[in-house]
Amino acid sequence: MYVIKVSSVKGGVGKSTISAYLSKYLSKKHKVLLIDADIIKYSSYLVKLLGGLRFESNLAVYKVDKIDEKILDNSYDYVVVDCPHFPEANCNKINSTIDIYVSDISSLDLLLSYVDSSKIKILIINMVSPFPEDIENIVEKIKNLNFDLKVVIPFIPKIYMSKFKGIENSEMEMIQEMAYKIEKADFNGQVISPL
């Protein structure tokens, strides 16, 4: 079982959306448990969780306020934990396999000062200006950072529609590619970007 912790240094950077989409893509081939431990419970809302627990094909979702090691069920291939933003003590109890750090441009430096993990580390820069020049600049800036995988996600206005359409009917190609890399354990420090 792989435990993937998704965290950020501040709210509003897209951590829950990324957790939901990552769970969706991993669940295409594997049994996945998404634990929504964030305060506002947005990732479970995105996967249209209505009654506390919902199974759809391979994806199961828990909405929890407190994380306990007992919740990590070995019957799943992947457990994705949508953590509250830093500083928090709840998610620290979890012995994760992969730590995903989500940030926007403005909080990147702050995030880097918090990152202290010996686990597999993935950095996601979310909501980057979608214009090629800006994406190229960000890729250039982060390509040498000490992460096992780096992902640049452009700001896509239509992604907001996913809360109406459900994540089943909308796609995030960068997260899909990241999920594929996680499945293949292909962590070579490369940058995944739309260009």
């Binding site: 979608p130 214009f131 090629p132 020049e133 994406i135 190229e136 452009p154 896509i156 206005p157 239509k158 739309p194 260009l195």
Partner: peptide
């Protein structure tokens, strides 16, 4: 851009 191209459709799809 230098390495790629962004297309934004009328309906905002990119």
């Amino acid at each position: 851009g230098k390495r790629g191209v962004l297309y934004i459709a009328k309906d905002g799809e990119i």
